[in-house]
Computed example of a mutant assay.
Amino acid sequence: MFRHSTRSFIVGLCALAAAAPTSPALAGGPPSPAPHTAARALHTQTLTDLTAAMKGEAYAYAVYNLFAAEADRQGLPTVGRLFRSTAQTELNEHLREAAALAGTVGSNAANLRQAISGETYEHQVMYRSFAEQARTDGDLAAAKLFSEIAADEGRHRDAFRTALTAVTTGGSTVPAPPKADAVPVPAGPPKVKAARTKANLDTALHGEALAHAKYMLFAAHAQQTGNTALARLWEGTAKVELHEHFAGEAVLAGLVRTTKTNLGKAITGEHNEATTLYPAFAKRATAVGDTAAARYFRDTAADEARHAAAFQKALEQLH
């Protein structure tokens, strides 16, 4: 893990964010509600860049855990441990700090309203359109999966609506958490053919990864406020998003290949973040005076460079 010296800073930011009333919407969702008072001081572009960072870090966490499982299957436990430790850094350091800066976590009611908005969009608009497009393009397995996930997201929305009533009025009880039907993700090529389906899968994968990460943050806040039933609902839904939805989409997308290929993909991604993406974010944040965000982007870029170097060393040791 990197940047242990920032831990107290991150925890403090998370505590401030937890006291705030609202936050940006889920990835791929409708227009974001107004950010909370602490985040409102940030420039709009900085908030956009922080959201992009969260989406990328959540995706890296999900993918690296799949890569770790494949390394284990190939009898490469050292590489598996490297992928898992890096995944933890992406989620528990990089994403959490970005979420704190952006004010992603609000009150339990605000978090539920944010999730309801995102789940409604995915249920009514995104996944239905993806399913229709996949059907038109002949990717019937993707069309079926998108339709199934659309229905799941509708159930998630309804559960969150009931939970919101419980939180705000006490007029109902928080629903029991859903159970994830975990999908194994073996190495293999894509199972879709159309470029549009592949692009939609990529959008969906990033959205499911971010939903998982956000819901785990919301669960922690619910637990901190003494609402264990709501925490369980968040955690159960997060597991569905990651182990069922993300995993099912990963199979169709051919996300996991051999460990050598997976390491190469990780190196490319980390190098891009270290040399292009995060430096650009830092430059923009600096230009508008968002110094804390600029520092975060620079520090994260340095971390990603170390990740790229570690993956490169692991790849070289496989030859």
Rank of each mutant, 00 (worst) to 15 (best):
A18G: 14
L277C: 07
E97L: 12
E90Q: 10
A18K: 02
V240Y: 01
K313F: 14
A100P: 02
D181V: 10
H123L: 00
P21G: 09
A238F: 01
Y278T: 07
A211H: 10
K193Y: 12
V183W: 03
E57D: 10
S85R: 13
L47V: 11
N111A: 05
S23D: 11
G29R: 12
R113H: 09
L255F: 11
G226Y: 07
A231L: 10
R40M: 15
A294W: 09
A309R: 08
F2A: 09
R295S: 13
E93Q: 15
F160E: 10
R196E: 11
A287C: 04
A34I: 15
Y215N: 08
I267Y: 07
Y121L: 08
Y59F: 10
A71L: 01
M54L: 13
E119S: 03
N65K: 05
A180L: 06
R40C: 11
E273D: 09
D290E: 03
L230G: 10
Q74F: 06
L164T: 01
V256I: 13
A141F: 04
K265S: 11
R3I: 11
A274M: 07
R113T: 04
A209K: 00
R232E: 15
T165Q: 14
K265T: 15
S85M: 07
L201Y: 00
A142L: 07
L164W: 09
L13G: 12
T169V: 10
A231H: 00
D181A: 12
P177L: 07
H271C: 06
K193N: 15
A131Q: 03
D139Y: 02
A250G: 00
A253K: 01
A52P: 10
I149W: 04
H123V: 02
E304T: 06
R155H: 13
A274R: 03
G188F: 03
N200F: 09
V288W: 05
T46Y: 00
A19C: 12
T237Y: 01
A250N: 02
A308L: 03
F160N: 00
L112V: 03
A310L: 10
R73W: 11
F83L: 01
A109Q: 01
Y59H: 14
L217D: 03
L205G: 01
L145Q: 01
E90A: 04
F83V: 02
H4T: 15
K179F: 14
S32D: 15
P21E: 03
A292R: 01
V167H: 08
L66T: 04
T44R: 12
T225Q: 07
T228V: 13
K193T: 14
T78M: 10
A100H: 06
R157Q: 14
G236C: 09
Q317M: 11
A309V: 10
T173G: 05
G226C: 06
H123E: 12
P177I: 05
Y278W: 03
T104V: 13
